[in-house]
Structure formats: C-alpha cells, structure tokens
Amino acid sequence: MAEHEPLIIAFVCNWCTYTAADLAGTSRLSYPKNIRLIRVMCTGMVDPQYIIKAFLEGADMVIVSGCHPGDCHYINGNYKARRRIKLLKEILPKFGIEKQRLKLTWIGASDGIEFAKTMQELVIQAKTIGPNPARTGAGL
C-alpha cells in the first residue's frame, strides 16, 4: 500500500508566517507539497469553526501560524488565537481528533528557513499519527 500522503491545512497570517513562506520560496527552499496555505490577515481572525471544518473534511493536521508575541500587527490577535487553540485542544480530542493534529506556532517574516523546517517536520509527524478517519467515514 502506498504511504499515506497527509493533507495539512496551514492558516498563516499575512504579515509574518505568510511572508516567511514567501521568503522560503524566493530563497528556493523547498517544503513538502502536503501543505495547503490559507492566508489570513491575522491569526486572531481564525474562527474555531474554520479549524473544525478542516478536520471534519479530513485534514490530517491543521496549523495556525502567525507573528511572535509582541509582533502581531493587530496588537493582540495572536494572544486571542492562543486561547482558541487551547480551547480546541480540549474539545477535539473528545471526538478522537488527537491534540497533536492541531498546532500553533509563531514564525516571523524573516524566518524562511524556520518555515520550511517546520513544514517538513509536520509532514513527518502527520505520517506517524496516520490518516484522519473523517476523510472517508460516511458518518450517517
């Protein structure tokens, strides 16, 4: 059987992690094709329901990544995101979606290398955890 190719949804803030991804690209650093980037203006606008939807549609991992504490362009969006991630890490495991499938990181605009490294590491982890059963389960 072919190795499971995980699908990872990354909500990245426009000002830091998205810029870092851009930098990774222009620096010709490669990162795995398993990642689907979704650019948002700030991690503070990632409503829990976006993350829930991603998992229910079968994402194997969801990462929210934005500016380091103190660097958020909307002052405190990343602190709000952190509480929401904390909340979801309590709720999702109740339904068998493991805590490790949900990540929050801070990757600054100049951290292209850090971005590529993080994405590579996530794919390794996602392969270890295995596929999200929601992808194909009928749920009748």
Partner: peptide, 23 residues
C-alpha cells in the same frame, strides 16, 4: 468521497462549533 452523506448535512460541524462557541 464518503460513500454517502447525512442530510441535512453539517450536523457534527454544527454541534462541535456550538461547543467551541458556548461550552
């Protein structure tokens, strides 16, 4: 993709979202 889908759809989505909003 899933073989079948419950209708009305989005039932788990609704309940988990409500849990995230008001639990």
């Amino acid at each position: 993709r899933k073989g079948a889908v419950k209708l009305p759809a989005d039932t788990n989505f609704y309940h988990i979202t409500r849990l995230a909003h008001i639990s």
